[in-house]
Design a protein around this nucleic acid. Sequence first.
DNA 1: TTAATCAGTTACTTTATGTAACTTACTGTA
DNA 2: TACAGTAAGTTACATAAAGTAACTGATTAA
Lengths: 102, 102
Amino acid sequence: MTQPTICPKFEKAVSLLSQKWTALVIYQLLLGTQRFSEIQTAIGISGKVLSDRLKDLESQEIIKREVIPKTPVVIKYSLTDKGKSMKPIIRDIEKWSQLWVK
Amino acid sequence: MTQPTICPKFEKAVSLLSQKWTALVIYQLLLGTQRFSEIQTAIGISGKVLSDRLKDLESQEIIKREVIPKTPVVIKYSLTDKGKSMKPIIRDIEKWSQLWVK
DNA sequence: TTAATCAGTTACTTTATGTAACTTACTGTA
DNA sequence: TACAGTAAGTTACATAAAGTAACTGATTAA
């Protein structure tokens, strides 16, 4: 009856990826810096959920939000180093899906 | 205004991993065949959700369910080849979490 | 003046998870 | 024999997460 406690860091990473849309947002930003509406139309997510997701990811320093003071203002999202370092995870999911998902 | 359609296979893989507990169940079964109650206490999931998850994963042929007709009956869950092939994904998440999650 | 875009927010609905108690064998203990 | 316990779930109900559609406020273009 030992509670084999799973590593909390691993658990946290897993809970990040088990939020819907997280992986797709990161996948999209691996293609380069993008604006809110670009991400939205690329992956087909609602404004509300994208807004939530971007806030989460920003607070975890996986993405950064840049305000470019033009008129009208432009807001650009991109991956931080922490975010970019998730690339192998995303690439493995891609590879696996090509081999195994019918 | 092109809809850059994300690969449906990739999307499907992502939606699998974005269900809560899926990655942890697979992680646990990478340690070897386990019984319902073993998985349950190992990862701290409720019977109801574990039951749902195992049904999903079985229907996608990621795990197999074996009934061993002893008295009382023993039920064992293990990964199929498709399930085992997700090991690199899980290992990458582990590695990333060790390096980047505080 | 009206329409359109961008980056969201708001209010409300639906779906997913979580909680706790219960079930149906069967076994082991008093 | 009666009582408690385990394994592998299921049921009914409660809360949290995600989806939908309409709306904002600033700005520009027709």
